[in-house]
Nucleic acid binder design. Structure first.
Length: 154
DNA sequence: GCCAACGTTGGC
DNA sequence: GCCAACGTTGGC
């Protein structure tokens, strides 16, 4: 098993895809990222072995519910080429793909959800990107914050 | 369901 | 290249 080089936070609405879905499937292709900054993080910095906080948005409770692992190198998101898919992008082509993804695997589900309220109010998580860039669905997390959330708060 | 924040589009 | 209009996200 490769050691993680970078740490991330991935957001998902549990109605669309939850940590329980990932636990059931064990592995999934993280399709549907259509934001350039998020795409750049995936394309330029994600590596096999990296660990991700799995965050449930628009849910009750909202917060980090578990951990996933990046299990392969970034590659073009096939849904951008599928005209019937919700994430189809007519500006993209297989020769010159715009959107990238990685495959992720289930690592663990926390016994307790680390809520957004906790994350916002904990002084140890000062400076975490989630606090000020609420809408970015793929974001880097420092090793310190990753360890604190997954070991101290979860 | 509302709406603030913020990313994207397109006319100029 | 600016910026107004528009669309989406996501907390509340």
């Amino acid at each position: 098993m490769k050691a993680p080089k970078n740490y991330w936070l991935l957001k998902s609405e549990p109605g669309a895809y939850s940590i329980d879905d990932l636990n059931r499937e064990k592995k999934t292709a993280w399709t549907g990222i259509r934001n350039y900054q998020a795409r750049n993080f995936i394309r330029d910095s994600m590596q096999p072995g990296d660990l991700c906080l799995f965050y449930h948005s628009n849910s009750d409770p909202m917060g980090v519910v578990g951990v996933a692992r990046v299990v392969g190198k970034p590659y073009p998101d096939p849904t951008q080429f599928d005209i019937k898919n919700h994430y189809f992008d007519p500006k993209s082509s297989p020769k010159d793909p715009i959107w990238m993804l990685v495959d992720i695997a289930f690592v663990k589900k926390f016994k307790h959800c680390v809520t957004l309220a906790e994350i916002k109010s904990d002084p140890a998580l000062e400076g975490m990107m989630l606090r000020r860039r609420a809408r970015l669905s793929v974001q880097p997390v420092s090793e310190k914050h990753f360890g604190y959330i997954s070991q101290e708060l979860a």
